[in-house]
Simulated scan of single mutants.
Amino acid sequence: MKKMFLLASSILMLSFLVSDNTISKKERNYASKLLKDTEKGVFEQVKGLTEAQLTFKPAPDRWSVEECVKHIAASEEMMWQMVDGTLKQPANPEKKTEIKFTDEQLVQKIEDRSNKVKTVEKLQPENIPLKNTEEALDAFKKNREKLIDYVKSTNEDLRAHIATMPFGSADSYQLLLFIGAHSNRHTQQIMEVKADPNFPK
């Protein structure tokens, strides 16, 4: 009986040790909600649009709705590869002091469209090998669902893996939030296209 008690205590202690290295329930819920809400936002904004509406460009140097969706889909995959690559590197918690943004501040910064940023060549719509909006949405949905499942189940110590980004340092958990915020940034762009006075009726 004593041995059983000691074994149970050891397992319980081990479970606490393991859970200390994972993101909290609150963090999981926050990231999951952000990813779900921003996925829903993309689909809501393109629902029912005609081919003419999807391909309308407000100006030669501005993207159409379809181009925005292609960019969102391609970025989703590329940014997950970036997160995965960061997690495969040795943990570097000593760099936590380099992180200057809270989670909420990071999301707000990425979603803020008043700060214009030119994307990398690979993620320019003309360089993305997705044929149309439907194919892009399928790819986006597939990758986003995988990401949400990952957030709900991962035991990785996301806070201990820090990456240096163009906007500053961020841990792997924040990079997951970045993905959700990024899709919302371009959902806002889609809304801007739809608000153009010349948008097809």
Rank of each mutant, 00 (worst) to 15 (best):
M79V: 12
S75C: 02
M1P: 13
F16C: 13
Q174T: 00
L158T: 07
S24W: 09
G85K: 11
T133K: 13
D157Y: 08
E67N: 03
D138G: 10
T119R: 06
V151Q: 07
D37Q: 04
N21W: 12
L177A: 07
T154P: 00
H71R: 04
L175C: 06
F5W: 12
D20G: 11
S64N: 05
E67H: 05
T187L: 00
Q189N: 12
E51F: 07
K142M: 10
P125K: 10
E51Y: 06
T164N: 15
S24T: 15
P166W: 00
K146G: 11
N29L: 14
L14T: 08
A181W: 03
K118Q: 11
P197D: 05
N21G: 14
S172V: 02
T133E: 11
K141N: 13
V42S: 04
P129W: 06
M79T: 13
K152T: 02
T164R: 13
S19M: 13
I11D: 02
Q188P: 11
S10Y: 06
A160N: 15
D157H: 11
M191Y: 00
E51K: 15
K118S: 11
S15K: 08
S183V: 06
D84P: 04
I148T: 00
K122H: 07
S9D: 09
S32G: 01
I11G: 01
D157F: 06
T154V: 10
K100I: 00
I72V: 11
L34D: 02
H186Y: 05
V120L: 14
N184Q: 14
I110R: 11
L12M: 14
A31F: 10
E126N: 12
A163F: 14
R185M: 01
D112I: 02
E67V: 01
Y173L: 12
A181C: 08
E44A: 15
C68K: 09
K47H: 12
L175S: 01
Q174P: 06
N29T: 14
P58L: 01
N21S: 11
R62L: 13
N29W: 02
K201M: 08
V42M: 08
W80C: 00
E104H: 00
K116G: 03
R159C: 01
D103I: 01
T154W: 04
I72C: 01
D112R: 06
L34S: 04
D37K: 01
K116L: 11
S15V: 09
P200H: 01
S75K: 00
M165L: 15
N184V: 00
E192T: 11
P166A: 03
E98R: 03
A160Q: 01
L130S: 02
V42Q: 03
V120Y: 11
L49C: 04
T154N: 08
V18A: 12
Q108R: 14
V69S: 05
K109P: 03
E135V: 02
K2W: 12
S153R: 10
Q81P: 05
E67Y: 05
I128T: 09
N92M: 05
I99P: 06
I23P: 07
I128K: 07
V18D: 04
K3E: 14
Y150A: 01
E39N: 05
E111L: 06
E156T: 09
P90R: 06
I179C: 07
F5P: 01
N155M: 12
I110Q: 02
M4E: 15
E94Q: 15
K141Y: 12
N143M: 07
Q124W: 09
M13F: 15
S64W: 04
E94Y: 07
P129T: 04
R28L: 07
A73H: 05
K96L: 15
